[in-house]
C-alpha cells in the first residue's frame, strides 16, 4: 500500500522542477525554436511560390519564344521566296531584253546585207550594160544608131533583170 501513496518531499522537488522547467523551456527555449520552425515554414512556402511563379514565367517566355521563332522562320522563308521571285523576274527581263537586242541586231544586219546586195546588184547591172554595149560596139561597129542602142540595152537589161529575179 505504501507504494501508491506519494511521499511529500518528492512533491516539492517536482513542483520546483516544474516551475524551473516551465520558465526555462516554455518561456525561454521553446519560443526561439518554434520561431525558427515557423520562419522556415514561411520561407519554404515563399520559395515554393516563387519557384512556381518562375516556372509559369519561364513557360510563358518559352511559348513566346516559340511563337517568335515560328514568325521569324516564316518571315525568313518569305524573304527567300521574294528574293527568288525577284531574281526570276530579273532573269526573265534580262533574257527578254537580250532577245530583243539580238533580234534588233539581226534585223539590222539583214537590212545591211540587203542594202549591200541591192547596191551590188545595181553596180553589176550597170557594169554588165556598159560591158555589153562595149562588146556590141566592137562586134557591130558604130553602125548602130543611138535609138537602136538604147533599145538593145533595155532588152538586155530586161533579160538580166529576169535572170536576177530567179
Amino acid at each position: 500500500m505504501d507504494k501508491i501513496i506519494p511521499i511529500s518531499v518528492e512533491l516539492f522537488v517536482n513542483l520546483a522542477a516544474f516551475v524551473v522547467l516551465f520558465l526555462l523551456l516554455g518561456k525561454f527555449a521553446f519560443p526561439s525554436i518554434t520561431k525558427m520552425m515557423d520562419e522556415r515554414a514561411s520561407k519554404i512556402r515563399e520559395s515554393l511560390e516563387k519557384a512556381e511563379d518562375t516556372r509559369v514565367e519561364a513557360e510563358r517566355l518559352l511559348d513566346e519564344y516559340k511563337v517568335q521563332m515560328a514568325e521569324a522562320r516564316a518571315e525568313a522563308a518569305q524573304v527567300i521566296e521574294q528574293g527568288r521571285k525577284v531574281a526570276e523576274s530579273m532573269k526573265a527581263e534580262i533574257v527578254a531584253k537580250a532577245k530583243v537586242e539580238a533580234e534588233a541586231e539581226k534585223t539590222k544586219a539583214i537590212e545591211a546585207i540587203k542594202a549591200e546586195k541591192a547596191a551590188a546588184t545595181a553596180e553589176l547591172q550597170r557594169e554588165v550594160a556598159d560591158l555589153s554595149v562595149a562588146v556590141a560596139s566592137k562586134i557591130i561597129g558604130s553602125s548602130l544608131t543611138k535609138k537602136d542602142h538604147e533599145a538593145l540595152i533595155d532588152k538586155y537589161l530586161a533579160e538580166v533583170g529576169s535572170l536576177n529575179e530567179n
Partner: peptide, 25 residues
C-alpha cells in the same frame, strides 16, 4: 526538498533537458 533515490535521478534528467534545449535555442 529532501531528495529520494528517484528524485535524485530527476535532477540530471532535468539538467540534461535544460542543457539540450538551451543548446537548441
Amino acid at each position: 526538498f529532501t531528495l529520494t533515490n528517484y528524485t535524485f535521478w530527476m535532477m540530471p534528467a532535468v539538467l540534461l533537458l535544460v542543457l539540450f534545449f538551451m543548446a537548441a535555442r
